[in-house]
């Protein structure tokens, strides 16, 4: 446990665990609503935010936060107004975000810093990041707990939620902001390229074994925290980018779960 004696590693673990809690929580709802493309899109938009920040000299994560919230609200509007073209509009926003990011990064000429925003970084998690991640992660957690069954209903049947008294329009907007915040907070730990995977992979693993909605959430959370913590520790000892080690751990956990489930069904279930 000698890694705990390093301040930067303690900070990375705090940030990583906060993100490791909120990412699968948001991910369960996002994936079940079949909106996971929104995660991909917002992470590329967030990268544009990072690039703008680097370019004009503002803390990149603040810029990522602002830009991805704006994009999330725009996506929600497009999703409602042009239902038939929802996917196309996501693809366009994704392309615009990535294009803009590329231009700004190449124009800035000192692109050394960008590496950590693409793949995550444990040594660069600073106190400023912790002060940003902690309160926002708690707010996200509180919002999801408060509106738990509202988000559940939106995921199961968005159309009928209104008849149960769920404030559909408002909750949809809240949800999109929560997704944007989660993505921005995860940049430091896993990097923009792999955020969408952190939102998806633990949930996919959790759903393999789940027997209810609640258990889906708890299992996804457990998978996510195992992946984040072991990923960060590998990253520390082998000096690798944490984004990759976290996601690969997650993928291995998913594959192992699928294999165990398959073997169990093949050999232990009475026919």
């Amino acid at each position: 446990m000698d890694f705990l004696s390093y301040t930067f590693m303690r900070r990375a673990l705090i940030a990583g665990n906060m993100v490791g809690v909120i990412a699968p929580l948001v991910g369960v709802f996002l994936n079940l609503r079949r909106l996971s493309l929104i995660g991909h899109t917002l992470s590329h938009v967030a990268l544009a935010g990072v690039a703008i920040g680097l370019f004009i000299g503002v803390f990149p994560l603040y810029m990522a936060l602002i830009i991805s919230i704006i994009a999330a609200l725009a996506i929600e509007k497009l999703r409602k107004d042009y239902q038939d073209y929802a996917e196309l509009s996501l693809a366009i926003i994704l392309a615009a975000g990535l294009g803009l990011a590329t231009i700004l990064i190449s124009a800035a000429r000192q692109s050394a810093g960008i590496h950590s925003y693409l793949f995550g970084s444990i040594s660069l998690v600073g106190t400023r990041d912790i002060y940003m991640i902690l309160p926002l992660a708690f707010i996200i957690l509180a919002v999801i707990i408060k509106y738990y069954y509202g988000f559940f209903y939106l995921a199961f049947n968005e159309n009928e939620a209104r008849l149960a008294g769920v404030p559909v329009k408002a909750l949809n907007i809240v949800f999109m902001v929560v997704v944007a915040l989660t993505i921005s907070l995860a940049i430091r730990v896993v990097g923009t390229l792999l955020i969408a995977s952190l939102i998806t992979i633990p949930v996919a693993a959790g759903m393999q074994l789940a027997w209810s909605f609640k258990s889906t959430i708890w299992l996804s959370l457990i998978y996510s925290l195992i992946a984040v913590n072991s990923g960060l520790i590998y990253s520390f000892y082998y000096d690798l980018a944490p984004g990759g080690t976290i996601i690969i751990t997650g993928v291995l956990l998913l594959l192992a779960t699928m294999l165990i489930k398959y073997l169990y069904q093949k050999f232990f279930r009475p026919r």
Binding site: A164, W211, F213
Partner: peptide
Amino acid sequence: EFNQSFPATVREIVGSNLYNKMGFIKFL
């Protein structure tokens, strides 16, 4: 026509309709 692999129990599906009757925190 709902997603047949949606991981929810009968209790959760029926309970979600009580949204209006849940308290400040939307749990059962």
